[in-house]
């Protein structure tokens, strides 16, 4: 029985450590390394990226949600630290233009096809 509990404890430790590591990786893959050229925090080994990775790990240990971690970092470094930016007026073109091009293109193709 004693060995069973020891095994269970080790097993749980490994599983939880693994899930925390996974969450850290997922979050840091969505964070931009602001002092690097086109790298995520996950990919970079700069001091900045290492600090952010450590911070994310600590916050996960403190049971903070992903949103709380992102909000904190957005507050400190601005919206652009996130690779997946939220919709704002200044980046509206980023979201609207592809849809606009698709609609205009579809209309043009449809008109040409119906003309034939």
């Amino acid at each position: 029985m004693k060995y069973f509990f020891i095994f269970l404890l080790i097993f749980c430790n490994i599983v939880f450590a693994d899930s925390k590591e996974k969450r850290t990786n997922e979050i840091t893959k969505n964070l931009k390394c602001l002092v690097c050229q086109g790298q995520s925090v996950y990919e970079s080994n700069s001091d900045f990226a290492i600090d952010i990775k450590n911070f994310v790990k600590q916050e996960i240990v403190k049971n903070k949600t992903d949103e709380e971690i992102y909000e904190f970092l957005k507050d400190k470094y601005g919206q652009n630290i996130i690779f997946n930016p939220t919709f704002t007026l200044s980046n509206s073109a980023l979201w609207i233009v592809p849809i606009l091009f698709f609609v205009i293109g579809s209309i043009l193709v449809f008109r040409r096809m119906s003309a034939k």
Binding site: L34, V35, F48, I50, D51, I52, N54, F55, K76, Y77
Partner: peptide, 12 residues
């Protein structure tokens, strides 16, 4: 560990 720096939004 650079934790104070993150709280201040420091890049380097």
């Amino acid at each position: 560990k650079g934790s104070l720096a993150i709280n201040l939004g420091v890049f380097g």
